[in-house]
Amino acid sequence: DRMTSQEAACFPDIISGPQQTQKVFLFIRNRTLQLWLDNPKIQLTFEATLQQLEAPYNSDTVLVHRVHSYLERHGLINF
């Protein structure tokens, strides 16, 4: 699994950072998509996403918020 070119453009700090940071991003992105796909008729809020993310992935709330906002803005969740 890899970041898309659009994700890389929107998250230059992640793509240029350590490999582990990219893996954390990918986990948060994929898990958020999975959470929404589990029940697409219900809006997936940032707060609900954060509550359902497993530790330690829920510890970087800023990154979780950025990923959630990106997915929502680009019509990948909550459409």
Rank of each mutant, 00 (worst) to 15 (best):
N78R: 01
E54Y: 12
N78A: 00
L63I: 06
S16D: 07
L37P: 00
N58I: 04
Q51M: 10
T49D: 00
E47F: 06
P12I: 05
Y70W: 05
Y57S: 04
K23E: 08
R73D: 14
F46G: 06
Q52L: 09
A8H: 09
H74M: 12
A48H: 15
V62K: 08
Q20P: 10
P18E: 12
L53A: 02
N39W: 03
Q22V: 13
H74Q: 14
I15Q: 15
Y70D: 01
L33D: 02
Q52F: 08
S5V: 11
P12Q: 09
Q19S: 15
A55M: 09
D38S: 13
E72W: 06
R29S: 00
S59M: 13
I15N: 07
T4V: 03
A8L: 11
Q34A: 10
N30S: 07
K41T: 13
P12V: 06
R73Q: 15
P18M: 07
L71C: 06
Q34W: 06
K23A: 15
K23D: 07
F79Y: 15
S5Y: 10
E54V: 11
P56G: 05
H74Y: 06
N78G: 01
I42P: 10
D38E: 14
Y57R: 02
R2Q: 11
V62Q: 15
Y70R: 01
H68I: 03
L26D: 08
C10Q: 14
P12R: 06
I14G: 00
V67D: 01
L76Y: 10
P40W: 03
V64Q: 00
T45P: 03
T61R: 15
P56W: 02
T49P: 02
V67C: 05
K41W: 11
S69L: 07
V62T: 15
N39V: 03
A48F: 09
T45N: 05
I28A: 03
T21P: 07
E54H: 07
A55E: 14
T61N: 08
F11H: 01
I14F: 03
E47V: 07
N30P: 00
I14Y: 02
W36D: 03
L63W: 03
K23Q: 12
R2W: 11
F25C: 01
L53D: 01
D38G: 10
L26K: 13
V62D: 11
P56Q: 05
A55C: 11
Y70A: 03
D13T: 03
V64Y: 03
F79Q: 15
F27N: 10
V24C: 09
N30V: 03
E54M: 09
F11W: 01
A48S: 13
I28E: 02
I42A: 14
H68V: 05
L50D: 01
P18W: 04
R31M: 15
A48G: 11
V64F: 02
H68N: 03
T45Q: 04
A8T: 09
K23V: 09
I77F: 02
R31E: 04
I28K: 03
I15Y: 15
S5W: 12
S59L: 11
T4W: 04
K23R: 13
E72H: 11
R31Y: 08
S59F: 15
G75Y: 03
L76M: 15
E72S: 08
N58M: 05
D1T: 08
N30D: 08
L63M: 14
V24I: 09
E47D: 14
E72I: 09
I77T: 02
Q6D: 13
I14M: 05
I15G: 10
F27W: 15
Q34Y: 04
I14D: 02
E47K: 11
K41I: 12
R29L: 04
A9D: 12
D60Q: 12
Q22T: 06
P56M: 03
L26I: 12
G17F: 03
A48M: 10
E72Q: 09
N39H: 15
D60K: 07
I77N: 02
Q51N: 15
F25Q: 00
Q43P: 15
F46E: 13
Q20G: 14
I42K: 13
V67M: 03
D60F: 09
I14Q: 01
S16M: 09
G17T: 04
V62R: 13
D60M: 11
N39G: 06
R29Q: 00
L33M: 08
